[in-house]
């Protein structure tokens, strides 16, 4: 069975695009969140293997959400997916605990590579 993924993005359209890319490649989308707050809540409920996280979202932004999720589970796997590719923000997201950063607009292959690499690292860690 494919890894279980939670998608957090305020745009339904973007969630559908990411969902489409991931399901076509054998991943299971267990939930979707439209705000950072919702992402944290759904992370607790669903315990996904990986979260894709936008940065600019209403209520709570993506970087805040990463911090909250890492507090709940320090080994959480989060992939940032945002158009905000500024160095300072990328560094802040990685320091907060995100594993990688994909800048929008992206090629589907870029998302797939990042997801596969993060999950492989998790597997290696679990096994050894």
């Amino acid at each position: 069975m494919g890894a279980r993924i939670l998608i957090a993005d305020d745009a339904i359209f973007m969630r559908m695009m990411i969902k489409d890319i991931l399901t076509k490649n054998g991943y299971e989308i267990v939930g979707e969140a439209g705000t950072g707050t919702e992402a944290v809540l759904k992370f607790q409920q669903l315990k996904p293997d990986l979260v894709t996280m936008d940065i600019v979202m209403p209520e709570m932004g993506g970087i805040e959400a990463v911090k909250s999720i890492i507090k709940i589970d320090p080994s959480a796997n989060i992939l940032m997916c945002s158009a905000m590719g500024q160095k300072a923000l990328v560094i802040e997201a990685i320091q907060a605990g995100a594993k990688d950063f994909v800048v929008k607009p992206f090629q589907p292959s870029r998302v797939l590579e990042a997801v596969a690499r993060i999950l492989q690292e998790k597997k290696d860690k679990d096994n050894g």
């Binding site: 339904i12 600019v56 905000m84 590719g85 500024q86």
Partner: peptide, 28 residues
């Protein structure tokens, strides 16, 4: 969903524009 897609288009454009401005000014 069409409106949402247009909003996302704006968001992606603006995010990249902010990155360029940030690089130019060395500011967040």
């Amino acid at each position: 969903i069409e409106l949402d897609a247009l909003r996302e288009l704006g968001s992606i454009g603006a995010g990249n524009a902010a990155t360029a401005l940030s690089t130019m000014l060395s500011k967040r």
